[in-house]
Design a protein around this nucleic acid. Structure first.
Lengths: 349, 349
DNA sequence: CTGAAAGCGCTTACAG
DNA sequence: CTGAAAGCGCTTACAG
């Protein structure tokens, strides 16, 4: 005999009353509620989650799927940890737990999601690393499990999403570089079908068009979203016949390898070539010269994910009546010295 | 009507038989088993985890607790993601799921563990970032929940643990530096009570003693386990009256800030001062000059954690009969150029 | 306001 | 080899 039964016997009342007291139902006398709460705290009683889940049909858990070792996640580093904290902060207000579900490298991401849903392990899901077309989204949409994606996708459906402002970043980057006189601007993109690569490229193209600069496909380099990928990017640039005078990296980790390769070639970012990166990380400030990049609050992003997800869950839509939301998360320019290099006569700004 | 009931009705047999077929019990005819398995696959049936858990008293889930935003975890970056993959690989062989439980920054780590255990969310736990004395360990030990720690602790008990070989790393680092003629070797340690800081310091002291070099407490700098902390470490070194000629960093991220501060002062690692870092990361190779540091396989470490944990779980001790294991995980020296700087006459090696 | 009872979806002795 | 039934720990209509 254990659990709520033990607690009830200990107090000499029925398990029903104990349950009601614990769950803050109105139909319990204040005196009884206090006795129950006190005894529960004393004995360290917490309701068994399986019992609750089975009865209520909900698990009180929200799953955040990450792919622990796939190409798309090379740069996960401390990105997700900040986001988790924000999500959790919102969920905890509703006594929901955030659990991270790592999809193994040798597991199929779609199967993984299917199993998770079918076994009813969580009440809702957050998925990340969205692909151009993402079958996980198609599956979740028809499964009726509430979910939100961190990242857009071309896969249609009325699901909520939040995505970083790749358009804004690409636009501002091109604008800055063009106004410093650059016309040959190379760009490093992930070499897979993750959606952000497409968005970034399109925005880059559009920005060039605004400045009447013809798009040169040879300036688009697809590479790994890692230090190694950035190194390779640097290598390819250096080998180009008509070498670009400025580069844009769509993943922060790429910048490390890029710096290294440029250094080996005796080129210094900001002096010999202009470099603009993507997300600011603690590293950015400690690179030499400091990186021009873009800032966001991971915690706020996480909170927003939590709120938007709750808004799409029937149980919480009253508390968050905004409905299904789509949101482009703004990023703030952090000017460094890596893009000081100018192609105009007056090099110094 | 849903779940196993629906599947049973669809096949015209009892739910008991369906369950037995699904769970590979011997007492089911081969024909029936095949029919059931086929129908389950077709209908995408997976047993509801709550129902199973309630009945069996186990959840088939192993929890890995990380603290998403505490000082101790500044350098989590991609360390854990590699480890997760290894753990999962082992657990999946036994149809166990790995779920990551992030303890929020504003939550108490002990309370978090207590809730997790009391609610019976997982069958066993992996905890990390062990402190010199760790009350989580004391609690888990008396709670009877199987667990393993990634990191040792002074808190006693017969629990299994795996820890990185801080002794070996500190020893080899000091040996290398001393044999290059260094006698003033500064060391950067975390400024909290995480156990690895104590182990590293003790080993550093012992190694100095072996070389008959007196221990100078002013060469021990306590700082944040981050880029910023490394920067501060560099700053303190530069301000020392009798400046050390070599430094050891106990956390890989510290090195970034250290390099930066040295660079600002016009000092180059490997030329003007010797630097040895801790764990090799993708970054190490892309720093200039390349870092002397230590390598380990995160995936293998994760697998070992999984195996040792299973060995301590009654259900699996037959498959892993090694009992409670304590293991120091070896790390392999990766010589770079950051410690080339020599204090002896013949500077080049 | 409280208690007794039903039932969530499973697994597993127990009969046959 | 299969079916009928009990029961895991909860929550929640339903009576009183």
């Amino acid at each position: 005999m254990k659990g709520i039964r033990k607690l009830a016997d200990h107090l000499g009342i029925s398990i029903g009353t104990v349950s009601r007291a614990l769950n803050n139902r109105p139909d319990v006398s204040e005196k009884t509620r206090e006795r129950v709460l006190k005894a529960a705290a004393q004995l360290g009683y917490e309701p068994d989650q399986s019992g609750r889940s089975l009865r209520q049909g909900t698990t009180s858990a929200i799953g955040f799927v990450i792919e622990s070792a796939r190409d798309a996640s090379d740069s996960v580093d401390n990105f997700f940890l900040g986001v988790f904290d924000g999500v959790q902060h919102v969920l905890n207000r509703h006594h929901l737990d955030l659990i991270i579900l790592p999809c193994a490298a040798d597991d199929d991401p779609l199967d993984f999601i299917k199993r998770t849903v079918a076994r009813r392990m969580v009440d809702a899901l957050i998925i990340s690393g969205t692909r151009r077309r993402d079958e996980r989204i198609a599956y979740l949409a028809q499964s009726k499990v509430p979910f939100i994606t961190l990242g857009r996708s071309e896969t249609p459906g009325p699901y909520p999403w939040i995505d970083l402002d790749f358009e804004g970043v690409a636009n501002i980057s091109v604008d800055r570089l063009v106004s410093a006189g650059h016309r040959r601007i190379a760009v490093a993109l992930p070499n897979n079908d993750i959606n952000l690569g497409f968005v970034y490229l399109e925005s880059y193209k559009a920005a060039l068009a605004r400045h009447n600069i013809p798009f040169d496909p040879s300036l688009v380099v697809r590479t790994m979203s890692s230090e190694q990928g950035g190194y390779q990017f640097g290598h390819e640039i250096l080998g180009m016949a008509d070498r670009p005078t400025a580069v844009m990296a769509s993943y922060e980790l790429m910048t490390i390898g890029l710096y290294r390769r440029l250094h080996e070639a005796g080129l210094m970012p900001g002096r010999d070539i202009a470099v603009i990166s993507f997300r600011e990380s603690p590293l950015s400030r400690f690179l030499s010269p400091p990186l021009t990049c873009f800032r966001l609050s991971l915690r706020d992003l996480g909170s927003a994910l939590g709120v938007s997800l709750l808004a799409s869950m029937p149980q919480y839509e009253d508390a968050y009546p905004q409905g299904v939301t789509h949101r482009i998360w703004p990023m703030e320019l952090v000017p460094g010295e890596s893009d000081n290099h100018s192609q105009t006569g007056s090099a110094k700004r």
